[in-house]
Simulated scan of single mutants.
Amino acid sequence: MKPLEILHHDQWLVAVNKPPGMLVHRSHLSRERHVILQRLRDQLGQRLYPVHRLDRATSGVLLFALDPKTANSLTTTFGEGRADKAYLAVVRGWPEPETGHIDRPVRDDARESHREARTDYRRLALVEMPFSNRRHDTSRYALMQLEPETGRRHQLRIHMERIAHPIIGDTTHGDGEHNRLFRQHLDCHRLLLHASALTLAHPVEQDKTLALQAPLRGEFSDVIQTLGWRDALTKAFAGLSVHQHHQAGNI
């Protein structure tokens, strides 16, 4: 099995570029053998401690601690919202305005209640494709940068669906017809949601900022190329680098 792509590795933590379609770790709901945690343990030959998670279908930056003390520190950082996250997504339609803020509660199944949830978004690129759908002869899509202020389960997927721009490939909160169009015309069978960047203070070296970026791979990268969004993506990653550098200077 192909080794996981390492984005950062020091004596206290390791970050990988998680591929889509894999669980982070086993749970009482799934006893799958091949999970990220076990694969990375085998790859590095040492114990790992999860400090945050990504959905099975989501790819991108995933961070692990290498000892309990570092794990506790990172868990606190994520829990207190002191880790800045950026995601890339392809959505149905052309969201207006170009930048916006979504503030809508998301249901917490564990608590059987709703919790506050906030997401900032920015439109990066637009395209109109000759894919006929039940309403129009063509179909419109947008490349988005999403930045969650809170970390609720499925928050980004739910928020984009609630503003009528669901993420392509989402089989729970998405649009089945447009998911089918991407399978049919672009041979894309995955959720087009990717954790592209993660920025936080290093848990041990306090004067250091971790500015992690995960490049797109596989089907998502192919979609970007086909839709003519490569330049927009390059600019987005460059913009994230500038933002991360600015943050580092203020820590």
Rank of each mutant, 00 (worst) to 15 (best):
E177F: 15
H154S: 15
G169E: 09
G151R: 00
H165T: 02
A211Q: 13
A201S: 13
D187H: 10
L191P: 05
H154F: 12
A214L: 09
Q184N: 13
A211M: 10
V204L: 09
L143S: 04
M144L: 15
D207S: 15
H159F: 10
R180Q: 15
P166Q: 04
E205Y: 12
H194L: 07
A197L: 02
L186C: 05
K208T: 15
L186D: 00
A214F: 01
L210Y: 08
A214M: 07
E177K: 15
T209M: 11
M144H: 14
F182N: 10
P148R: 03
N179M: 03
L200S: 12
A195N: 00
D170F: 05
E149P: 00
H202Y: 13
Q206N: 10
L192V: 06
G176W: 12
H202F: 12
D207M: 14
D170L: 13
A142G: 04
L156D: 04
L143H: 06
T209C: 00
G176A: 10
H178L: 14
Q155S: 09
L212H: 06
L181V: 09
R157A: 04
H194W: 00
H165E: 03
Y141G: 00
M160F: 06
R162S: 15
H178S: 08
Q213V: 11
A211I: 02
G174M: 05
A197R: 11
L212M: 02
F182E: 04
D207W: 14
A195K: 01
E177S: 15
R183T: 10
L198M: 04
R157K: 03
Q184I: 12
Q155L: 07
H185W: 05
I168Y: 04
P215F: 02
R183V: 08
A195E: 02
R162E: 14
R190Y: 08
F182W: 11
L198K: 02
Q213E: 11
R180C: 14
R157S: 01
P203W: 04
L198N: 03
K208I: 12
A201N: 14
R153Q: 03
E149A: 02
L210W: 00
E147L: 12
L212F: 01
R190Q: 13
A211H: 13
E161W: 09
T209F: 00
T199W: 01
L192F: 10
H185Y: 15
Q206A: 13
V204N: 09
N179L: 08
K208Y: 13
R157Q: 02
E161V: 05
R183M: 14
G169L: 10
L143P: 08
A164W: 12
H178P: 03
P203K: 06
C188L: 12
G151V: 05
K208A: 06
Q213R: 06
R183E: 15
N179Q: 06
N179R: 08
T199N: 10
I168P: 07
E177R: 13
R157F: 05
G176F: 11
L143W: 05
A142H: 03
Q184K: 15
R153F: 09
L192Y: 09
R157C: 04
L212V: 01
E147H: 13
R162N: 15
I163S: 07
E205D: 08
H189D: 07
R183N: 09
L212T: 00
H159P: 01
L210E: 09
A164I: 14
S196M: 09
T150M: 05
V204R: 09
A197H: 03
Q184D: 15
Y141C: 04
A197C: 08
H178F: 11
P166D: 01
L210D: 05
